[in-house]
Amino acid sequence: MARKQTKISRRMLFTWFILTGFIFLFAPQNFTSKFQLAFVHVFRWPLSIGGNLALTARTQQPLTGTVGRSEIQNRNYITTLEETLDEERKKFKKLYGLYNTYVWEGTDFALADVITAKVEGSRNELTIACRKTNGLTEGQFVLGDNSIIGTISDVSSRTASVKLFTDPTSRIAVKIGELDIKKWMQGNGNNTAKIPLVSIQHEIKKGDKVIARKNAEFLDGPVIIGRVARLKRDDKDPLFWDITVEPACDIEQLEDVAIIIMNSQK
């Protein structure tokens, strides 16, 4: 018996596909992002192999006099400790006689492997495979090489997305160097971020550390996030600085990260 073949016109085919595209486009993003995370979860093994190959190909032997990765890790750790100590001293002065808790007390960490990294370009994101997913929620800070690299933006079973602080949708409260002023750092894409509206009256120099301020919900103490990479007067408003911040670690080289889980039930 001859098989009956259904003929669909090209116009109909095109209309149905474009309609499907618009349904995806206007569907809630927290729903459609599950498809993206599911894809990464299913193909995490070949994806991470590809990522590791890229890392191996890009890794160069450090030249004499250049700063190695372990040195960057230690430097970030020391900066965070110094800031914590400084913060603790201030607290101690304020709350006379009260013994303050160490910054990470009551804090748990969830370790995760980096599956894919999108560091350059217009959007900056990591997809990570979590070894434990208990207590993971959107907004939690993520550490890479002892410095803040971003926040959790989406969580599914054993896979999560990290919105890097350099992503244009990211906004994190920070302080610059020794200045005790609260400013918002906005992602700029292409592995950099900007701190707008800082008056030129403030003394800032290239290389100054940028510290993520503590956050009542997700961060119990100051942690280093980046360093001032470029500094010039704002072209639009010369009364303000145009500050470009680069991450305190090489995010592209990260193989694993730690998610800060505050007030966890141990």
Binding site: Q36, F39, K118, E125
Partner: peptide
């Protein structure tokens, strides 16, 4: 037509953090 939309869908799947849909439409 079929392959263009399918490739666009694949591009959307790995286009995170962009939402799904834009690449399917533009590729198609």
């Amino acid at each position: 037509i079929i392959s263009s939309f399918t490739i666009g869908f694949a591009a959307d799947l790995v286009g995170s953090p962009m939402p799904m849909g834009p690449q399917m439409i533009s590729f198609g």
